[in-house]
Nucleic acid binder design. Sequence first.
DNA 1: CTGAATCCTTAGGGATACTG
DNA 2: CAGTATCCCTAAGGATTCAG
Lengths: 140, 140
Amino acid sequence: MKPRHGHISDGCRPISEVLSLIGNKWTSLIITRLIEGPMRFNELKRQVHGISQKVLTASLRALERDGFVERTEHPTVPPSVEYRLTPFGRELAEPLLTLTRFAAINGERMEAARAAYDEGHDTPPPGTEPRRKPLGLRLN
Amino acid sequence: MKPRHGHISDGCRPISEVLSLIGNKWTSLIITRLIEGPMRFNELKRQVHGISQKVLTASLRALERDGFVERTEHPTVPPSVEYRLTPFGRELAEPLLTLTRFAAINGERMEAARAAYDEGHDTPPPGTEPRRKPLGLRLN
DNA sequence: CTGAATCCTTAGGGATACTG
DNA sequence: CAGTATCCCTAAGGATTCAG
């Protein structure tokens, strides 16, 4: 996900950029994991449940490019690469945590609101499903 | 956009939900606009530059479903519909603004970081473009 | 004015296999 | 271990048209 911008309007552009940055479903999880401290690739992959290595690589590259994450390659064999937040990255982590906390706290409230909404609206008679998407996601 | 979750891991699920919520490129802009006060559909559409009617409708539905936005339909002709943040929505708006401010303030820093990164890496020799996407976005 | 319905393109991202 | 390279598929979301 790198629309990265779009001519939203000059005022909104950078905002949209950052938002789409954290919106790519994984970066925020990555960053919040990295707050704890530097981490190696596979360690990070294990901590961010469900992410594929392809996407993890891509996300880290993006974060590195934007100056939020620093990549340190140790010339050992087998390779060892460490990722750490830059100072800039830690600045971003702050507001991100704020949001993360909000989510953690209000998760069920959202669930409830949805349930209520779905009920009040065209809830297909039970037994007449197809309901909402089965969605085919899987864990690692 | 309703991936809305995915079995990220039980701890991260609500977080991912909220993040994907704001990640859909428009919702955060919508919410921050609605902080100013209730707004009608087309007024909102004008304020959120570049959004299509379809997407605005969909985003508002999603926000309504999640309990962040309230929809009030005035039975006039022609129709007049007002959207306003719920108290819950205003709670979400807080941390969203934090992020929004970060973006506004650090926009150029990101630009700079990217420029630096792109330069230090495989910058294709000038004249040999195709460089980065032309990307075909347009304003309203 | 508010929105629903359609069509269509793009890219995010999952799965899998291969490499230094 | 830390990636790169492919294939492929779904969904986000533009553009356009129709309707109450």
